[in-house]
Amino acid sequence: MPGCSLPVRQPCAIRHPTCLAAGSDGFLTKELIYEKNHSQPPSTDSTLFSVTPEADTETLLANASETLNSAREMANMLAFDLEGPQRSLVLAIHQLVEIGGLLVDQALEKVAPV
Protein backbone atom coordinates (compact mmCIF):
# COMPACT_ATOMS: atom_id res chain seq x y z
CA MET A 1 0.00 0.00 0.00
CA PRO A 2 1.75 3.21 -1.08
CA GLY A 3 2.52 5.65 1.70
CA CYS A 4 1.43 3.31 4.50
CA SER A 5 3.67 3.58 7.55
CA LEU A 6 2.18 0.69 9.50
CA PRO A 7 4.19 -2.48 10.00
CA VAL A 8 2.97 -5.50 8.08
CA ARG A 9 1.33 -6.83 11.26
CA GLN A 10 0.43 -4.49 14.10
CA PRO A 11 -0.44 -6.01 17.50
CA CYS A 12 -3.46 -4.57 19.25
CA ALA A 13 -3.10 -4.24 23.01
CA ILE A 14 -6.69 -3.07 23.44
CA ARG A 15 -8.18 -6.00 21.51
CA HIS A 16 -10.78 -4.07 19.52
CA PRO A 17 -13.45 -6.17 17.79
CA THR A 18 -11.82 -5.33 14.44
CA CYS A 19 -8.50 -6.71 15.67
CA LEU A 20 -10.09 -9.89 16.93
CA ALA A 21 -11.87 -10.34 13.62
CA ALA A 22 -8.56 -10.14 11.81
CA GLY A 23 -8.09 -13.87 12.18
CA SER A 24 -8.50 -14.17 15.95
CA ASP A 25 -4.77 -13.70 16.51
CA GLY A 26 -5.17 -10.09 17.67
CA PHE A 27 -3.15 -8.59 14.82
CA LEU A 28 -4.21 -6.08 12.21
CA THR A 29 -2.77 -6.22 8.73
CA LYS A 30 -2.27 -3.34 6.33
CA GLU A 31 -4.83 -4.90 4.04
CA LEU A 32 -7.50 -5.16 6.75
CA ILE A 33 -6.94 -1.55 7.84
CA TYR A 34 -7.06 -0.33 4.24
CA GLU A 35 -10.21 -2.36 3.54
CA LYS A 36 -11.94 -1.12 6.71
CA ASN A 37 -11.06 2.52 6.00
CA HIS A 38 -11.77 2.52 2.26
CA SER A 39 -14.62 0.05 1.72
CA GLN A 40 -17.34 2.52 2.69
CA PRO A 41 -18.20 5.62 0.67
CA PRO A 42 -16.99 8.89 2.17
CA SER A 43 -19.36 10.41 4.69
CA THR A 44 -21.28 13.50 3.68
CA ASP A 45 -21.50 14.47 7.36
CA SER A 46 -19.10 17.30 8.16
CA THR A 47 -18.96 16.46 11.88
CA LEU A 48 -15.46 15.48 12.90
CA PHE A 49 -16.07 15.02 16.62
CA SER A 50 -19.28 14.40 18.49
CA VAL A 51 -20.51 13.69 22.00
CA THR A 52 -22.89 10.87 22.62
CA PRO A 53 -26.36 12.21 23.50
CA GLU A 54 -26.73 9.49 26.16
CA ALA A 55 -23.88 10.88 28.30
CA ASP A 56 -25.06 12.14 31.67
CA THR A 57 -24.24 15.61 32.99
CA GLU A 58 -21.68 14.34 35.51
CA THR A 59 -19.73 12.52 32.79
CA LEU A 60 -19.80 15.54 30.50
CA LEU A 61 -18.59 17.87 33.23
CA ALA A 62 -15.88 15.47 34.37
CA ASN A 63 -14.56 15.18 30.81
CA ALA A 64 -14.74 18.96 30.31
CA SER A 65 -12.78 19.41 33.53
CA GLU A 66 -10.06 16.99 32.40
CA THR A 67 -9.85 18.69 29.01
CA LEU A 68 -9.47 22.11 30.60
CA ASN A 69 -6.83 20.75 33.00
CA SER A 70 -4.85 19.45 30.02
CA ALA A 71 -5.13 22.77 28.17
CA ARG A 72 -4.07 24.65 31.30
CA GLU A 73 -1.01 22.44 31.71
CA MET A 74 -0.02 22.85 28.05
CA ALA A 75 -0.32 26.64 28.29
CA ASN A 76 1.66 26.63 31.53
CA MET A 77 4.50 24.62 29.97
CA LEU A 78 4.52 26.73 26.79
CA ALA A 79 4.66 30.00 28.73
CA PHE A 80 8.10 29.10 30.10
CA ASP A 81 9.47 28.65 26.57
CA LEU A 82 8.36 32.11 25.42
CA GLU A 83 9.28 35.68 26.21
CA GLY A 84 7.67 39.09 25.86
CA PRO A 85 4.22 39.55 24.33
CA GLN A 86 3.91 35.88 23.29
CA ARG A 87 4.47 34.79 26.90
CA SER A 88 1.88 37.30 28.13
CA LEU A 89 -0.63 36.00 25.59
CA VAL A 90 -0.12 32.37 26.64
CA LEU A 91 -0.43 33.33 30.31
CA ALA A 92 -3.72 35.12 29.52
CA ILE A 93 -4.97 31.98 27.75
CA HIS A 94 -3.85 29.97 30.79
CA GLN A 95 -5.88 32.26 33.05
CA LEU A 96 -9.01 31.95 30.89
CA VAL A 97 -8.70 28.17 30.86
CA GLU A 98 -8.21 28.20 34.63
CA ILE A 99 -11.39 30.27 35.11
CA GLY A 100 -13.31 27.91 32.80
CA GLY A 101 -12.00 24.97 34.81
CA LEU A 102 -13.14 26.53 38.08
CA LEU A 103 -16.62 27.07 36.64
CA VAL A 104 -16.86 23.49 35.37
CA ASP A 105 -15.54 22.09 38.66
CA GLN A 106 -18.14 24.11 40.60
CA ALA A 107 -20.92 22.83 38.32
CA LEU A 108 -19.61 19.27 38.73
CA GLU A 109 -19.62 19.68 42.51
CA LYS A 110 -23.30 20.74 42.38
CA VAL A 111 -24.26 17.83 40.14
CA ALA A 112 -22.24 15.14 41.93
CA PRO A 113 -20.92 16.27 45.33
CA VAL A 114 -17.88 14.41 46.60
Rank of each mutant, 00 (worst) to 15 (best):
N76G: 07
P53M: 00
I99Y: 04
T57M: 11
S39Y: 10
V90H: 01
P7R: 07
M77T: 08
D45F: 04
L108Q: 06
D81N: 13
Q86G: 02
P11A: 05
I99M: 04
L20T: 08
N63P: 06
E66F: 07
L48W: 14
L102T: 02
C19N: 01
A107R: 02
R72K: 08
D25L: 03
D105S: 04
E73C: 07
C12H: 08
L60G: 02
L68Q: 01
L6Q: 09
E73Y: 11
L102P: 00
D105V: 06
S5A: 12
V51P: 05
A92V: 06
S43P: 03
D81I: 02
H38V: 05
K110E: 09
T29I: 05
V8R: 15
N37P: 04
N63M: 09
H38M: 13
T59N: 03
S46E: 14
L78C: 10
Q106W: 07
G100N: 10
A79G: 07
G101L: 09
R15T: 11
L48S: 14
A62M: 05
S65D: 09
V114W: 11
L68T: 04
P41I: 04
Q40Y: 03
F27T: 03
E109H: 10
A112K: 03
T57A: 11
L20Y: 08
G3M: 09
L103K: 05
E109V: 05
D105C: 00
N76A: 14
M74R: 13
P85I: 09
T59C: 01
P42Y: 06
E98K: 08
A79R: 06
F27Y: 10
S43D: 04
K30T: 08
P2Y: 15
A112Y: 01
S65G: 01
G84P: 01
V114D: 13
P42D: 11
F80M: 10
K36F: 12
L108W: 03
N76E: 14
G101E: 00
A64H: 02
P42F: 07
P2W: 13
P41W: 05
P11E: 03
E83W: 10
L103C: 09
D45S: 13
P11L: 04
V111C: 02
S5V: 14
E73G: 01
T18H: 13
H94V: 00
T67I: 07
R87W: 04
K36P: 02
D105N: 02
P17V: 12
N37I: 07
V111S: 05
R15K: 10
P42C: 15
N63K: 14
C4W: 12
L32V: 04
S46C: 12
K36G: 03
